[in-house]
Design a protein around this nucleic acid. Sequence first.
DNA 1: TCGAAGCATAGACGTTCGTCGATGTTCTGT
DNA 2: ACAGAACATCGACGAACGTCTATGCTTCGA
Lengths: 121, 121
Amino acid sequence: MTMIELPLTAASAACCIGDTCAPLTREPITVDGARDMSLLLKALADPMRLRLVSMIAAHEGGEACVCDLTEPLGLTQPTVSHHLKVLTDAGYLTRTKRGTWAYYTLVPGALDSVAALLRTV
Amino acid sequence: MTMIELPLTAASAACCIGDTCAPLTREPITVDGARDMSLLLKALADPMRLRLVSMIAAHEGGEACVCDLTEPLGLTQPTVSHHLKVLTDAGYLTRTKRGTWAYYTLVPGALDSVAALLRTV
DNA sequence: TCGAAGCATAGACGTTCGTCGATGTTCTGT
DNA sequence: ACAGAACATCGACGAACGTCTATGCTTCGA
């Protein structure tokens, strides 16, 4: 069987970390699993990025462009774009470009997948 | 009604962040809520700390001393103690000293509380 | 065609983080 | 009382992170 390396994202995280379906409390997580999971958590472990996720979800239509998010956060546009890229690369957000605007949306079930990873006995 | 400032820990995290019981997708999280939640996630967003939590949970009796954890991680004893302190301060672990040994245990429901915070609609 | 708007990227800078060696502290056994 | 074991704390150092300014790339409207 040929194994293919796939980038781990927040949406596909549940029950796939380190090729072990056991929760943390059954047997020790693998080294690779711990690394992947830490990347997912690290992308979320920032106040501004948490607010970004929350604001996008709460925004009308479940989507928001960069210009909607810059002012309420009190950050510059490049910084907001940076945070959005981190969240998108981790699999929490998707980007859709319409005209000159870039609209960001939550990936359905992404947060739930990560939450499932934290589940213990 | 008198409000008392309490340190937010992983065990008490569920439904208490920023005084809002709404999930992230209802209305934007508060500034303080985002800061507190990021601290909880940051404590967990490290490969070695994830492995520590997992190894302690999988250890016999659900507890482990520092000497049990140093060698399998390939870290020095001060580094392991440092990580255990971070996890303990965040509310994920408890410390019990018996003799010269310090035994660490998972706080029941701590991971679940944080997982509940990530729940969205 | 050209200027402006919206966004991404690049480079720089100060801060935080993970790790280490050295040392302090507490407890046990002799 | 003392030597050793187990652990915590301290100080230092390189790497990673968050933020900024400056700049480049598209797209739209005049």
